[in-house]
Simulated assay, not measured.
Amino acid sequence: MFKLTTAAAEQVLKAAKQGNAEGMSLRLAAARKPDGAIEYRMGFEDSVGEDDIRFQSEGIDLVMAPEDVPLLDETVMDYVEIEEGKPHFIFLNPKDPNYRPPADA
Protein backbone atom coordinates (compact mmCIF):
# COMPACT_ATOMS: atom_id res chain seq x y z
CA MET A 1 0.00 0.00 0.00
CA PHE A 2 0.96 3.67 -0.25
CA LYS A 3 3.29 4.91 2.51
CA LEU A 4 4.60 8.22 3.82
CA THR A 5 8.06 8.73 5.23
CA THR A 6 8.40 10.47 8.57
CA ALA A 7 9.68 13.61 6.81
CA ALA A 8 6.67 13.65 4.46
CA ALA A 9 4.23 13.15 7.34
CA GLU A 10 5.80 16.02 9.30
CA GLN A 11 5.48 18.33 6.28
CA VAL A 12 1.87 17.26 5.66
CA LEU A 13 1.04 18.17 9.27
CA LYS A 14 2.76 21.56 8.88
CA ALA A 15 0.89 22.24 5.62
CA ALA A 16 -2.43 21.27 7.22
CA LYS A 17 -1.81 23.66 10.10
CA GLN A 18 -0.76 26.52 7.79
CA GLY A 19 -3.75 25.95 5.50
CA ASN A 20 -6.34 25.59 8.28
CA ALA A 21 -6.88 21.98 7.16
CA GLU A 22 -6.10 20.25 10.46
CA GLY A 23 -8.18 17.13 10.89
CA MET A 24 -8.78 16.73 7.16
CA SER A 25 -7.65 13.70 5.19
CA LEU A 26 -4.98 13.98 2.53
CA ARG A 27 -6.44 12.87 -0.79
CA LEU A 28 -4.02 11.27 -3.23
CA ALA A 29 -4.61 10.82 -6.95
CA ALA A 30 -2.57 9.68 -9.92
CA ALA A 31 -2.93 9.61 -13.69
CA ARG A 32 -0.83 8.04 -16.40
CA LYS A 33 0.61 10.60 -18.88
CA PRO A 34 0.86 9.85 -22.62
CA ASP A 35 4.57 9.05 -22.22
CA GLY A 36 3.80 6.47 -19.51
CA ALA A 37 5.01 8.59 -16.60
CA ILE A 38 2.70 9.11 -13.64
CA GLU A 39 1.35 12.50 -12.57
CA TYR A 40 0.62 12.81 -8.85
CA ARG A 41 -1.91 15.07 -7.15
CA MET A 42 -2.78 15.64 -3.53
CA GLY A 43 -4.84 17.97 -1.42
CA PHE A 44 -6.71 18.16 1.85
CA GLU A 45 -10.31 17.07 1.87
CA ASP A 46 -12.92 16.96 4.61
CA SER A 47 -15.48 14.84 2.75
CA VAL A 48 -14.80 11.25 1.84
CA GLY A 49 -16.89 9.27 -0.61
CA GLU A 50 -18.54 5.98 0.24
CA ASP A 51 -16.30 4.07 -2.20
CA ASP A 52 -13.06 5.86 -1.27
CA ILE A 53 -10.22 3.85 0.20
CA ARG A 54 -9.21 5.18 3.64
CA PHE A 55 -6.04 4.29 5.52
CA GLN A 56 -3.27 5.76 7.65
CA SER A 57 0.47 6.09 7.24
CA GLU A 58 2.73 7.71 9.82
CA GLY A 59 -0.39 8.95 11.65
CA ILE A 60 -1.78 10.79 8.61
CA ASP A 61 -5.29 9.97 7.37
CA LEU A 62 -5.06 9.23 3.66
CA VAL A 63 -7.82 8.71 1.12
CA MET A 64 -7.88 7.75 -2.55
CA ALA A 65 -10.46 6.73 -5.10
CA PRO A 66 -10.45 3.00 -5.93
CA GLU A 67 -9.30 3.70 -9.50
CA ASP A 68 -6.12 5.36 -8.18
CA VAL A 69 -5.04 2.35 -6.12
CA PRO A 70 -3.37 0.42 -8.99
CA LEU A 71 -1.07 3.37 -9.81
CA LEU A 72 -0.33 4.34 -6.20
CA ASP A 73 0.10 0.90 -4.62
CA GLU A 74 3.73 0.35 -3.50
CA THR A 75 4.49 4.09 -3.71
CA VAL A 76 6.42 5.92 -1.00
CA MET A 77 5.97 9.68 -0.65
CA ASP A 78 8.97 11.50 0.80
CA TYR A 79 9.87 15.12 1.50
CA VAL A 80 13.43 15.87 0.46
CA GLU A 81 15.77 18.68 -0.46
CA ILE A 82 17.23 17.77 -3.85
CA GLU A 83 18.43 21.31 -4.48
CA GLU A 84 19.67 23.28 -1.51
CA GLY A 85 16.89 25.39 -0.02
CA LYS A 86 14.19 23.85 -2.25
CA PRO A 87 12.57 20.93 -0.44
CA HIS A 88 9.58 19.23 -2.03
CA PHE A 89 7.53 16.05 -2.05
CA ILE A 90 8.70 13.19 -4.24
CA PHE A 91 6.93 9.97 -5.13
CA LEU A 92 9.01 6.79 -5.26
CA ASN A 93 6.88 4.51 -7.39
CA PRO A 94 8.25 1.36 -9.05
CA LYS A 95 5.31 1.53 -11.51
CA ASP A 96 6.55 4.84 -12.93
CA PRO A 97 9.00 4.41 -15.86
CA ASN A 98 11.02 7.35 -14.50
CA TYR A 99 11.48 5.65 -11.11
CA ARG A 100 15.03 5.06 -9.96
CA PRO A 101 15.52 3.24 -6.63
CA PRO A 102 17.30 5.35 -4.03
CA ALA A 103 20.98 4.55 -3.63
CA ASP A 104 21.80 2.66 -0.46
CA ALA A 105 23.30 4.95 2.14
Rank of each mutant, 00 (worst) to 15 (best):
E84W: 07
L71M: 08
F55M: 14
N93V: 00
D104W: 05
M42L: 06
V80R: 14
D68L: 00
F44W: 13
A37G: 12
E84R: 14
R32M: 14
A29D: 06
T75Q: 02
L28C: 03
L26K: 04
K95H: 15
I38E: 03
P66L: 09
E39R: 13
M1W: 06
G43T: 09
E74C: 02
A16C: 10
L28D: 00
K14N: 08
I90K: 04
G49V: 01
R54E: 15
I82D: 07
S25P: 00
L72H: 00
I82N: 10
V69P: 00
A9N: 04
I90P: 00
D96L: 04
N98S: 08
H88L: 14
A37D: 10
T75S: 10
P66N: 08
D61H: 13
P70S: 10
S47I: 03
L4E: 02
T5S: 15
G85F: 11
I38A: 09
E22I: 11
V12M: 11
A21G: 04
P97S: 04
G23M: 08
R100T: 10
G49L: 05
T75G: 01
L92N: 07
G49D: 13
G85C: 09
G85N: 11
K3D: 03
A9F: 06
F89E: 05
A9G: 09
D51A: 12
V48Y: 02
S25Y: 07
N98D: 10
G19C: 07
A65D: 02
S57G: 10
T75K: 01
D61Y: 05
E67K: 15
F55W: 11
F44D: 09
Y99K: 05
A103H: 11
I90H: 01
E50M: 03
R100N: 06
